[in-house]
């Protein structure tokens, strides 16, 4: 049984007479991304700040890796937790490398180790060190600045990262790209992430678990799929908004709904294509070559490919071989029928 990375136990926070958090309790599993989402002023950012003690609870306990944060030195705690904010807050008078090196310097790493770590992170963030190390933040675009912000937060290899609307100030295209990249990066670094946003679509996309906030309270804490299937209250339903069916398709992976029987299942995809043994019902792309999806792609992507072609079935390919097929009917069923989806 793994230990919780972060636990909130009946946490209350008030500022004078105003109650910001009214008894929230939930826990975050290591290595997952938990998104706190809700309208502004609902207490999601306050919740996050309780973890690295930028705020202290009025009542209740916040635990970080099993230990009450009130018993840990604030400064040590913050240095062991990554922190990214919407406004980035890069130090404009320092180079990119110096910015990234902030926490390792505070922790007194030796220079050689810092240099290596900076290069490694810039590489990870797709900012080639040779080109960007010595640049000043003013020379970078908004997206690049936020990458530096993320690299700076990751510098001392924290077990937990707090991200407060990290992509909120970026244009939609940059935001979308950074979200995708960040999902990939997260698979490599395996850090526990607490992510705050007011955008339900971002929450559905980034979160393994989502905590939906109404004023000072968590009204539902569950996986994106279950929240879309069974909104706990009318507020949650309203907050998810329209097109719930389409949103379900965005979070549902093809692998979960594909059928695993069929003539081509089990064969190598290259063989299927080259031998010309592609069944007539298999979907093709614009140029007429047979289309396919990966098992971890969204059903939305699969539906899009099916709609664009005249075939009725789309092969699902994993590691070069066909592992199943998916059809419009299956997608249709998945998005409309309430069905508990169990994740491993």
């Amino acid at each position: 049984m793994s230990q919780h990375a972060i636990e909130f136990e009946n946490v209350r926070k008030s500022y004078g007479d105003t109650l910001a958090l009214d008894g929230i309790s939930f826990s975050v599993e290591p290595g997952t991304t938990t998104v706190l989402v809700g309208p502004s002023g609902c207490g999601k950012t306050t919740t996050m700040k309780l973890v690295n003690r930028l705020e202290d609870p009025t009542d209740g306990t916040v635990k970080f890796e099993g230990q009450d944060v009130q018993e840990v030195d604030k400064i040590d705690l913050r240095r062991s937790i990554g922190y990214v904010i919407q406004d980035i807050g890069l130090f404009d008078h320092m180079t990119v490398a110096e910015n990234v090196a902030t926490v390792p310097r505070l922790l007194d790493w030796d220079e050689e180790r810092i240099d290596e770590r900076v290069d490694e992170l810039l590489e990870l963030m797709d900012l080639p060190p040779a080109q960007y190390r010595e640049d000043y933040p003013r020379e970078l675009s908004g997206g690049q600045r936020q990458r530096v912000g993320v690299a700076r937060a990751l510098a001392a290899d924290p077990d937990v990262m707090l991200m407060d609307e990290p992509f909120g100030a970026l244009d939609p295209i940059t935001r979308d790209n950074l979200q995708d990249e960040f999902l990939e990066i997260q698979e490599q670094i395996n850090t526990t992430i607490l992510f705050v946003t007011h955008d339900i679509d971002e929450a559905l996309k980034m979160g393994d678990k989502i905590a939906i906030y109404d004023v000072g309270e968590v009204v539902q804490y569950d996986t994106p799929e279950n929240i879309l299937e069974n909104p706990a209250t009318e507020f949650v339903e309203d907050f998810i908004g329209q097109n719930r069916g389409l949103k379900k398709l965005q979070v549902l992976e093809v692998g979960h709904i594909m059928s695993t029987d069929g003539r081509i299942v089990g064969q190598s995809w290259a063989d299927v294509r080259s031998t010309g043994s592609v069944p007539a019902e298999v979907a093709t792309d614009e140029s007429g070559t047979p289309a396919h999806v990966a098992a971890d792609q969204s059903t939305e992507t699969a539906l899009s490919k099916l709609v664009e072609s005249d075939g009725s079935k789309l092969p699902v390919v994993e590691n070069g071989s066909v592992v199943g097929t998916v059809s419009v009917d299956q997608i249709n069923d998945a998005s409309s029928e309430p069905k508990e989806i169990v994740y491993e």
Partner: peptide, 18 residues
Amino acid sequence: VDDAVTQAGRGLGMTQVE
């Protein structure tokens, strides 16, 4: 000094003197 910058400094674990 921009609030975001001092906020970031606090969040990254700088003491007031740092």
